[in-house]
Design a protein around this nucleic acid. Structure first.
Length: 203
DNA sequence: TGCCAGGCCCTCTTTAGGGCCTT
């Protein structure tokens, strides 16, 4: 199965349209249910990090000021992804920052994003909620660092995706739990999930 | 200091409102 790039951004806020910028990015490459490669870097976009964000993430102004320029980091990140299909938890958020930060260095960010939040709502409707930490605890996924740091969250999302691929194979008989199947599943109404997966399993 | 977005999804819905999720 071809690799999938799972990405997570730490940022100064929730909206690049309102001037928020990325402070850290991590990308984990998942292949055959295993993490096979990682990229992580803080980045300096020349903006201040407020106290709420520092408390949430542990990322300080000093850390950001000492980091490489955002454009350099984003070029490296794009090179690392190399056009592979992408996944994030609440992908609408990370996709916005991926596109906004790449646009600042004149690069195209129109990658196909699958979303573990949307997929979780379809595969695990019984979950108490669909926060990344809750789902990781629910599935007894390994944790590898402080939550709300990019690499730890990207790895957690990668483990969640691997769990989903496993469940798609063992519970629903989907032998090809690839990115195309995930994109189709997240576009499927939750009432149609069973018939969609049955159709894909038989394909 | 306090505030900001936006797509998805549910329901006491569809000519709408509000919670969830991300930082």
């Amino acid at each position: 199965m071809s690799p999938i790039a799972i990405i997570d951004f730490e940022t100064t806020g929730i909206s690049p349209n309102m001037g928020d910028r990325a402070t850290e990015v991590a990308i984990v490459m998942l292949e055959g249910g295993q993490v096979v490669d990682r990229y992580q870097s803080l980045m300096n976009a020349g903006v201040r990090v407020n106290s709420f964000i520092t408390q949430l993430t542990g990322i300080t102004n000093e850390m950001v000021q000492a980091a490489p320029p955002a454009e350099q980091v984003m070029r490296d990140a794009a090179r690392f992804v190399a056009g592979r299909p992408m996944v994030a938890h609440n992908a609408a958020f990370d996709k916005k920052f991926w596109q906004a930060e790449l646009a600042r260095c004149g690069q195209d960010g129109s990658h196909a994003f699958a979303c573990t939040l949307l997929l979780s709502r379809r595969l695990y409707p019984q979950a108490p909620n669909h926060k990344l930490g809750t789902l990781a605890a629910l599935h007894h996924l390994p944790s590898s660092g402080r939550a709300h740091r990019a690499l730890a969250d990207a790895e957690m999302a990668a483990h969640l995706l691997a769990q989903m691929q496993h469940d798609l194979k063992t519970r629903y008989g989907c032998t090809q739990a690839d990115h195309a199947l995930l994109m189709g599943l997240q576009r499927t109404s939750r009432h149609m999930v069973g018939s969609y997966l049955k159709q894909r399993a038989g394909a």
